[in-house]
Every structure is written in structure tokens, then in C-alpha cells.
Design a binder for these strands. Structure first.
Lengths: 161, 161
DNA sequence: CATTTTCGTCAGCCAAACTGACGGTCGAGT
DNA sequence: ACTCGACCGTCAGTTTGGCTGACGAAAATG
């Protein structure tokens, strides 16, 4: 007697399938030293490089954990740390040439997965599906922005005594 | 300069939001001792109980890891292990009364999340979105079934020597 | 009965995250 | 000019959540 699967379980399935696919494709393309957790670094990395603190925030991780991942990637030659001219504390993490190759291969793999999925369910359904996800992401970004921006609407004026 | 987010990042967002929501709701409902990994046990648990081996397979985990989770849940009073009448080796893991309360609370939380999401994007878009996920899960189940069923199409007749 | 398979546990290991403390740098106000 | 709070990145230690391999007990098979 099985109970009906809930939304969480349904969302997890394609994500797991995609991860496996990308991992396999990258390994086949000669990037076998990359582990899954390294890929989240690339996802947060701007084209012209990012600072560690930003990478950590985007990946919902601590600076320390992200630092360890960047250490790995630097050692393997996928990224490099260059000092920021404008701020002496900051080291900018940016892709090397090999880092860009990973980016390209990963995007190709994800693209192929999505295309095959679309072929199975139909391009229009896929467009609708994707648009729901994109709207969710956009709304979430809005919410985050309005949560930091406002002039502290009514901080409870703590310390009554 | 940000690069466009890929499908994986888009899928992860609602999943993360849902997890946070459910965790918060469960904690508020008095189940603060449950950690995220405990919930995957409930997802694989049949209404009339399941054996440890099946739970592990459904969660893509080893029996040992699942065993540890079940130990926790048993200690906290959410599940119990009862001997199977038909097979002396197996112990059936099944929900206690409190375990069913968790199930109910979790489903309510997920349901609320989904309803609020649907209210924002429209019920018809939500239906389409969900149907894509359900079809994916169904196809995956088919693939898994046909991968185990066939009479080993062409095992390479190993051991040439 | 003897053998093989299945079920669950135990011991030990490893990856990946976390918290807390810290030294170096920046920038804003005296 | 100087201090002082805030921010950037790193170091040390811990927790969580998985894994593998070896194993004993109970069934199933012959």
C-alpha cells in the first residue's frame, strides 16, 4: 500500500536524473576530477569573476565551505584567485581557460537533457514547465530584494527598559 | 555579469523553498526533533509498513544508512519494528500513532505550499507543471521496470578463457 | 542436511557541510 | 590623524550523512 508521492519527491526526480547525466557527460569529456559539489561553484560564478563571500551566499553555504571548494578547483586548474585592485581584502575568483571549457561542456550536457525531455513531452509543455520555474525564481529574487532594501519598516525599538 | 541559470538551478529553487517550509511547519507543530534526512524515510514508508531493504532502495541509500535513520525514528517514537509473520528474518518498519501525526502534518504543509504557489501562477499552469513532473516519474518507473524484467538480452558471455 | 541467499547489524572511513575565533583591511566619525 | 566598527578571507575543530566491507542469523534450495 503506497501513499501518493508528494511534490517534493516529484521535483527531486528530474533533478537527480539531470545530475547523473551531467556528471557522466563531464567525466566522459575529461573532467573526471570534478565532484558534484564543485559544480555549484561554477553556477554562482560571474563571467568576470566573483568574490568568495558572494559565491558562498549564492550557494547558501558558509564562506569556509566555499573556500574549500575553490581551493580544490584552484589546485586542479579550473579557477584562479586574483587580487582586486579596488579592495585589498578581496581576491576575485575567476575561471581559467580550462574553467571555461567545463562551463561549455556542462551547459551542453544540460541543454541536451532538456532537449531530450522536451522531445518526449512536447515543446509547448516544456516551455510552460520552464516558465513556471523561471517565474518562481524571479519572484524569489524580488522577495529577497525587498527584504533587504526597505529602511527597516518597524524594527521593534527593542530594549523597553 | 551573470550567466543565465541552467535547468538544474531552476529546479533546485522550489525544492529548497519547499524543504524550508516543511521543516519550519513541522518544527512549529512540535516535531522539532526531526531532521531533514528523517523525512525521506516517511516518503518511502508504505501505509502498512515496509522492510528496511526496500526503504533503503527507494531512498537510494544503503541499508546501513537507512538503518541508522530508522533507529533514530524508533528511539523518538515515530516508528516501530515488528517481526514479519511470513519471514522470520524481516522486521517490518511501520509508523506509530505519532508517526502518522507527522505524516499528516507534512502533507498539510506540502499541500499548503503547492496551493499558495498555484494561487500565484494560476491553477491551470500549476496543473500543467505538475503533469510534466508526474509524467517524468512515470516514465522513469517504466524504464526501471523494463531494465530489470527482460531475460538479460545479451550478457556478454564472459570468461573467454 | 549442507549450501547458498537474504536480511539486518557492526565497525570504520570519508566528504561536505557547520560554528567559532582570528588577523588584515577598509571606511566613517570624531 | 586616529580610532573603531564592519567586512573579507582563513584556520581549527565538530557534526551530519553518507559509504564499504565483514559478519551472524535465519530462510530457501538442493
Amino acid at each position: 500500500m503506497e501513499l501518493a508521492p508528494m511534490l517534493g519527491a516529484l521535483l527531486r526526480r528530474p533533478l537527480r536524473a539531470l545530475s547523473s547525466r551531467v556528471a557522466a557527460d563531464l567525466a566522459a569529456a575529461g573532467f573526471a576530477d570534478l565532484r558534484p559539489s564543485h559544480l555549484v561553484v561554477f553556477q554562482g560564478l560571474d563571467a568576470d569573476g566573483s568574490r568568495l563571500t558572494d559565491l558562498a551566499a549564492r550557494a547558501h553555504m558558509t564562506k569556509q565551505s566555499m573556500g574549500a571548494l575553490v581551493d580544490d578547483l584552484e589546485r586542479m586548474g579550473y579557477v584562479e584567485r586574483v587580487p582586486d585592485a579596488a579592495d585589498g581584502r578581496v581576491k576575485i575568483v575567476r575561471r581559467t581557460g580550462r574553467g571555461w571549457e567545463v562551463e561549455r561542456a556542462a551547459r551542453a550536457s544540460v541543454g541536451a537533457f532538456e532537449a531530450e525531455w522536451a522531445a518526449q513531452i512536447g515543446a509547448d509543455r516544456m516551455r510552460g514547465f520552464r516558465s513556471v520555474l523561471e517565474d518562481f525564481a524571479a519572484d524569489e529574487a524580488d522577495r529577497a530584494r525587498s527584504a533587504t532594501a526597505p529602511p527597516s519598516p518597524h524594527r521593534p525599538a527593542t530594549r523597553p527598559r
